[in-house]
Design a protein around this nucleic acid. Structure first.
Length: 306
DNA sequence: TTCCAGGTTTCCT
DNA sequence: AGGAAACATGGA
């Protein structure tokens, strides 16, 4: 990703073709209860930990259409050290490397996707680059409604996460480190009103991540989403939905497909104007047209729900 | 009050 | 292999 540095603490980069910051922001704004980033004046702001540093990063657009990345909260002497990892984080987070032309070649003539493809053209699959954040968020979201999942995440983050305070006194939260959750007992998490199983899954997966048994590198090295699924579903608490969710939003396998996802089912039902959710075989039939782009298809379908 | 929610495990036949 | 129950809180 080409970028230039105009002034200390500010980078600008040219976004890829078929990119809409507005639609991507629209997805990110779907919950007012999101605690890991905030959206202010068309800018996304979050803390991006880099080693011991806790820079606060603001991503926005300039009048000329380029993306601006402003870094605050680090000593000037440390800017050089954090700017490249931050650039990498933002590029991964907003999926700025993917060429979407092949996706739209499919989506534009797909009876189900053509509407969302037109409405949200340029929307990027917003990622969760940190492996434990991705796994933890998926486990938090298992079986419960999304608003409650955001509430649980907020409680977990504000109880066990780190934070940085910016120059204006605003606190920016960081998802708890796997090492932190790995050291807990279920009794520490149950008071947050999650089930004992959810607490157990969060701790167990944290231990695997903290010990290096489960790493993004190993999982990414899997040849396909289904290979990653095999590795992930061998872990207690990670079933096929969670495995594909992580493969889609963290490992970025384009063919990752959480086919059991209720949100996916509701989006299809809504777009079809149907009075029932589609069956699994019906979804497989539709998805046979999306080969290699299931993750993006799912994301655009999710976007229609908000 | 009832139903269901960005599921997974366990326990049945 | 395939189906049902338990989990447990909360939003509509």
């Amino acid at each position: 990703m080409q970028h230039r540095i105009d002034e200390p603490g500010t980078m600008r980069l040219t976004p890829p073709p078929i990119f809409s910051f507005e639609h991507t922001l629209g997805y990110m704004a779907r919950s007012a209860n999101e605690c890991l980033y905030r959206i202010e004046n068309g800018t996304i702001i979050r803390c991006v930990p880099v080693g011991p540093h806790k820079p606060v990063v603001a991503v926005g657009t300039d009048p000329d259409g380029s993306l601006s990345i402003r870094i605050s909260g680090v000593e000037p002497a440390d800017l050089d050290r954090v700017s490249v990892p931050i650039l990498e984080y933002v590029t991964d987070w907003l999926d700025l490397r993917t060429d979407l032309a092949p996706f739209f070649k499919i989506a534009d003539r797909d009876p189900l996707l053509c509407g969302p493809a037109e409405s949200f053209r340029g929307l990027r699959l917003v990622g969760v680059p940190d492996l434990y954040e991705a796994i933890g968020w998926a486990i938090l979201g298992q079986q419960i409604n999304l608003p409650f999942a955001y509430t649980l995440k907020r409680r977990l983050v504000e109880s066990f996460g780190g934070s940085a305070v910016d120059g204006e006194g605003v606190r920016h939260w960081i998802f708890p480190a796997a090492e932190t959750i790995a050291a807990l007992n279920p009794a520490d998490l149950i008071p947050l009103k999650m089930t004992a199983k959810k607490a157990e899954y969060l701790i167990h997966t944290a231990q695997l991540v903290a010990s290096g048994t489960l790493t993004k590198e190993k999982l990414s090295a899997a040849g396909s989403a289904s290979d990653a699924e095999r590795l992930l579903t061998s872990v207690r608490g990670i079933g096929p939905w969670t495995a594909h969710y992580v493969a889609m939003r963290c490992l970025r396998f384009p063919e990752a497909f959480p086919i059991q996802d209720v949100g996916l089912h509701l989006a299809i039902k809504k777009l079809q104007g149907a009075d029932r959710k589609p069956t699994l075989p019906e979804i497989r039939e539709m998805a046979s047209r999306w080969t290699g782009w299931e993750a993006y298809a799912t994301f655009y379908l999710w976007r229609t729900l908000y």
